[in-house]
Design a protein around this nucleic acid. Structure first.
Lengths: 125, 125
DNA sequence: CTATCTGCAAAACATTTGCTGAGCA
DNA sequence: TGCTCAGCAAATGTTTTGCAGATAG
């Protein structure tokens, strides 16, 4: 994987925020520095970067996908009002051992878990 | 809420399957009985029915939304290959009590939890 | 009767892709 | 220099919406 300036800026912007921006939001931020970058390039790079394990594509719900500069799996809270997410640096007590006991003919490989809530901003209004 | 024949058939089809069809799949099924129904009507009704609590809109990930004739919250396994889901009628040991101890300024209201795995069909190939 | 609902078509988004020329290694 | 990548634009897929006529209650 080459380190083009587009790729570098995308990665850099994503590492310096905790707001889990969508692809379009990344695009808007990066465009301040690289005005000629195209949205297609942003999508392509977000995809490549997450496949390479440098960032995380948050397969979250409903709306568009969001991206996280922290590639290690961790817990997110999602605001049910505005859709914004926040990191939670705390483990929930859900054991993988318990998952293997689930009665299903699927081969269980993991969980997708996120907390739902209302963020302080939305709570005010 | 009126009980139109379109709405009745959509609800009926959804109640008689466990496959969590997407809106387009519901459309295809319903069209066998009501050939002139439009996709827009299907979307509108799926939305209304889930807001009324008669069905469940599965806010699942990545791809398009899927719908469940069972409105009560229950666990789903999602195939990471084909995206198909299946119900799991079993509780995981995750207590609401534990959620309230999460350190965040969000007002926690719930969790979104789904299992990931590979379905028997995809496992074969 | 009339407020709600349908069908249709267009619009709105999010995302992907084909192509040609540019630039990293 | 060669292979990967960027920019552009068109295509794709999902969901929403405006409108005029139909219909449940």
């Amino acid at each position: 994987m080459r380190l083009t300036k587009q790729r570098k800026v995308i990665l850099e912007k994503l590492k310096s925020t905790t707001s889990h921006p969508s692809a379009v939001e990344v695009y808007d931020t990066v465009r301040k520095e690289l005005p000629n970058i195209s949205l297609g390039t942003v999508y392509r790079n977000l995809d490549i970067l997450s496949r390479e394990g440098l960032i995380q594509k948050i397969e979250t719900c409903g709306e568009q996908k969001r991206f996280d500069g922290i590639p290690e799996p961790h817990l997110h809270v999602i605001c049910t009002d505005c859709g914004r997410g926040r990191d939670v640096h705390q483990e929930l007590n859900l054991k993988m051992e318990e998952l293997t006991r689930v009665k299903t003919d699927f081969k269980i490989t993991g969980v997708r878990l996120e907390l739902l809530g209302v963020c302080p901003e939305c709570d005010r209004s």
